[in-house]
């Protein structure tokens, strides 16, 4: 059945090992993968979007409680973490750049540096979380609003602020916890020489994901840490 064998498309012109059978060419395959990643990131925007919406509504309804709650967040740690994450975005961009040039060792080094910076971010985040637990600022029955200088009716929405704080930063941190092993895996593949200037799509897609996580934090930082700091 020669015609069936034909349809397998395994003829001589199309033998690049990274080209899967249903694509015409490597660039077409890469275009599709990149576009698919972007569509995925759009779904992520909408996923976080629900929380950003809740934040917008409650911040307008309970502005004072949000200001008082926000001031209890550690501005220094938040700012340092923002810088750390921006650094990790730079190292990730350099990692993708190195892989596009086929520089194997540089790729691995930049990716590992990205993982290190991501871990620093998560470490600082853990310190901040612990502080909130110590001060009973975790939503629930034992929530205490005294330290926020809120009383009576006004103290209740502070729980909503902290609920959103934990939900938004927690979801963001979850994305980083998922991202770090992926980067490690990609670094291992790079170390094994799986990528080339013609084929390094996995590195690029991982980069897109990591930059997206960075963008979420770029919005979380001013929204959560910088409300009413000037009073």
């Amino acid at each position: 059945m020669s015609s069936v064998a034909d349809a397998h498309g395994r003829d001589a012109d199309r033998h690049h090992p990274d080209l899967v059978h249903h694509f015409e060419s490597l660039p077409a395959q890469k275009e599709a993968a990149t576009f698919g990643m972007w569509v995925f990131l759009v779904t992520e925007v909408m996923f976080f979007g629900g929380l950003f919406l809740a934040y917008t509504i409650y911040r307008n309804l309970y502005f004072h409680a949000f200001v008082q709650s926000s001031r209890h967040l550690n501005l220094t740690l938040g700012a340092v973490n923002t810088a750390v994450l921006i650094c990790s975005s730079l190292t990730m961009a350099m990692g993708v750049h190195s892989s596009a040039l086929g520089r194997r060792r540089a790729t691995v080094a930049w990716l590992l540096l990205t993982v290190a910076l991501g871990s620093v971010f998560l470490g600082i985040k853990a310190v901040e979380y612990k502080d909130k637990f110590d001060h009973h600022l975790v939503p629930g029955e034992r929530f205490q609003a005294e330290e926020l200088h809120l009383e009576g009716e006004e103290s209740r929405p502070a729980q909503i602020f902290y609920a959103l704080y934990f939900a938004m930063t927690g979801l963001h941190a979850t994305h980083m916890v998922i991202g770090i092993p992926i980067i490690l895996f990609i670094a291992w593949m790079a170390h094994r020489g799986r990528f080339s200037p013609e084929y390094h799509t996995p590195v690029e897609l991982t980069g897109l994901y990591w930059h997206f996580v960075d963008i979420i934090w770029i919005f979380l930082f001013p929204l959560l840490y910088l409300i009413g700091r000037h009073h």
Binding site: Y58, P139, I160, F166
Partner: peptide, 16 residues
């Protein structure tokens, strides 16, 4: 975890 985003007792809005 008693997040409370939709809890009217905390000022949350079920309509959201």
């Amino acid at each position: 975890l008693h997040l409370g985003i939709y809890d009217p007792r905390l000022g949350g809005d079920p309509v959201l």
